[in-house]
Design a protein around this nucleic acid. Structure first.
Length: 285
DNA sequence: CGCATTTGACCAGCGC
DNA sequence: GCGCTGGTCAAATGCG
């Protein structure tokens, strides 16, 4: 994890023009460690995951990290754990997030087959899924990232129920499957430890929450410790808020690093800006 | 007692 | 068709 050469934006969208759930811990780590090494990003088409490797990621749970990160990104600069964020300071997240939620109820935003989304646990036979003939199950958008952590299950503000565990091929570490405990929320996540680097946890989110994080509810202990949104979408990241057109993570990151903001991709799936290419690798054979 | 986890069985998709 | 693999189910079990 040698010297950082040039400059890399710490995150990108993965595949297609989908809205991805996004875990803020990733930004936290990247921003907290501006000289991070982006070791690898393997990307392929149609629902396969991209990998971010943040070798310098540190303490995931320290709420002070959130503070620093947000500050560096230019948001919530006055926010502290003791003084929860004001509506203004986080508007660029929460407002667009609300918009996405609204849209996602129509499911088109995700490019999902509405039937698929309705399925959930209903419409399943005792074993397996009963779907109409000829219909192929579509994957929800997935987003994966890697984090250095001794703890497998990173706190992200949502409540999860474990529903399965499987041995991973060529790995001594099992993969755990979790579902969001909120009713009618079909978001899943998988957690496994990298066999190449056992100190690294690979977390994969699939789908989009249709509700707010329990941790953001007023009065909850989690909210007091971590007043920041626990799930972002790429919309939050790439599109400016109404209140502050120049503020989104994408542009702000450049500004904070003394660079001209690059043009926003029109679609997440559009050809990536040139500066991304150095961190890209061909999918493994 | 209610909820979460464990764990073996089952299912679907894919390559051969 | 068969075997392999990833993903899910659901009964049993654990825990507060």
């Amino acid at each position: 994890m040698g010297s950082q050469q040039g400059f890399e934006f710490p995150f990108i969208s993965t595949t297609d023009d989908l809205v991805h759930n996004y875990n803020p811990f990733m930004y936290n780590h990247q921003l907290q460690n501006p000289n991070h090494d982006v070791l690898s990003f393997t990307n392929s088409l149609h629902g396969e995951m991209g990998h971010y490797n943040m070798t310098n990621a540190t303490n995931v749970f320290d709420s002070s990290l959130h503070r620093q990160v947000i500050n560096e990104a230019g948001f919530a600069s006055t926010t502290t754990a003791e003084n929860p964020a004001t509506p203004n300071s986080t508007v660029s997240f929460s407002s667009s997030e609300a918009g996405v939620e609204e849209d996602s109820s129509k499911s088109n935003k995700l490019g999902l087959d509405p039937h698929d989304q309705e399925l959930g646990d209903v419409g399943k036979s005792k074993k397996g899924i009963s779907k109409k003939k000829g219909e192929k199950k579509q994957r929800e958008p997935r987003f994966a990232f890697m984090t250095k952590s001794e703890v497998d299950n990173l706190e992200d503000g949502y409540r999860w129920r474990k529903y399965g565990q499987k041995a991973v091929k060529n790995s001594p570490f099992p993969r755990s499957y979790y579902r969001c405990t909120s009713q009618k929320c079909s978001v899943k996540k998988r957690i496994e430890r990298s066999f190449e680097d056992p100190s690294t946890v690979i977390t994969t989110y699939e789908g989009q929450h249709n509700h707010h994080s329990p941790a953001t509810l007023r009065g909850s202990a989690a909210a007091m410790l971590n007043p920041f949104p626990t799930s972002f979408t790429t919309q939050d990241l790439f599109f400016p808020s109404n209140n502050n057109p120049s503020s989104n993570f994408y542009t702000q990151y450049f500004i904070n690093h003394g660079q001209q903001p690059q043009e926003l991709p029109h679609q997440y799936s559009s050809p990536l800006p040139n500066f991304f290419s150095s961190s890209f690798h061909e999918p493994r054979p």
